[in-house]
Design a protein around this nucleic acid. Structure first.
Lengths: 199, 199
DNA sequence: CGCACCATGTAATGCGTTACATGATTTT
DNA sequence: AAAATCATGTAACGCATTACATGGTGCG
């Protein structure tokens, strides 16, 4: 009988990608769990997010595995906090993941598309209204990326020239978000027109 | 003390969106679990998917709730099959969901963006290679939508004129997929250029 | 006075994947 | 002879959300 010789890869138990999102953040500087959450919400939020509870449990796992270490800090007025730092092992782990090419497309789940796909059962007017409603949401989001997000990135880059290379990539991801929202707006407009003219 | 008067909504236990994906498919015609899987893979696959195991369990739930009904059919050569049909209650449920506007943007998880975001730690050459690799994958996918998928939809519409309205919406979702892949290709090209010129 | 912010965790539950278990028929 | 298609399910596990549980500080 043959033994399993394939399946070389680490087969790590525990988190999937969140693990790397957290390691990436700790790669910039030590942070609390709460701080990681804040950092995510205000940077990767529009393409990667997590709840606090999951961040706390994942940090605990990462510590058990030796990818991060923590120290409790007492504070004058605020409650105690546990500050996490990335370890050398964690850095190796992160760098290995970054270097590995993505060999496929990640599977999408677009609720809007699912609805539109089956909307032949729906009445014309409700569909048009709903499409327009979504359009406005995406338009606002695009605007947010163009103004608020762009400013935040520029500010971070100006404050700390050491992150210039990082800021370039952050800006690239922001631009992706902006374009995706623009695409949504255009597609929704076009789809409304299609329905108006051919239903 | 106040009692909870809010929280009117149904609070249904069980599946999230998969439920509606299945009801939508059964809305076209009765099908087996295996058939639902096939239908999904060859239509909504690029924006909504599920594993067979999950489809079987969800169908069982839907039957318990009365949204679908099933009958076992014996076959000459093939194994027995359980054919599911949507019930009136299921149709109401589906229509209600279709009519309800999406009031937010669904949260995204884009692994590629996550990687790019943290790739300041990576070396220039590896990043460029990986970006190019992804570019090719997305280019191929865009091509698939333009040729294969477009043909399939046109064929379905030609075979059965009754689904003309549906086919229009199917084509709209296909076009979304095509554009999204085009966007990816363009963004990846632009990002590579950015890295080449400014790293 | 109330709300937002800072700060940490656990428990229960739901959603989704992988692995297990089976097996005939049809196509290449 | 091997692979794909047809066909059904269960069990274990991992990933993610919601709910539970707590409490001080600062601001308007």
């Amino acid at each position: 009988m043959m033994y399993k010789l394939w399946c070389i890869k680490s087969d790590r138990k525990g988190a999937g990608m969140l693990r790397y999102a957290i390691l990436g953040m700790l790669g910039y500087q030590p942070m609390t769990g709460y701080g990681v959450k804040h950092a995510m919400d205000s940077s990767t939020g529009y393409f990667w997010h997590a709840k606090l509870s999951q961040i706390y449990t994942t940090l605990k796992q990462l510590e058990k595995e030796g990818a991060v270490s923590s120290a409790v800090e007492r504070q004058a007025t605020r409650p105690e906090k546990r500050v996490y730092s990335i370890t050398d092992a964690g850095r190796r782990d992160l760098d290995e993941w970054l270097a590995a090419p993505l060999i496929g497309l990640d599977p999408r789940k677009e609720t809007l598309l699912l609805k539109v796909f089956f909307s032949g059962r729906l009445d014309r007017e409700t569909l048009l209204t709903n499409l327009h409603l979504q359009r406005e949401l995406h338009r606002k989001q695009a605007e947010l990326y163009r103004t608020h997000t762009a400013r935040e990135i520029a500010r971070a880059a100006a404050q700390n020239p050491a992150v210039a290379k990082d800021a370039m990539l952050w800006e690239a991801t922001r631009r992706f978000g902006e374009r995706l929202e623009d695409l949504m707006v255009n597609w929704l407009d076009e789809t409304r027109r299609l329905v108006e003219e051919n239903w």
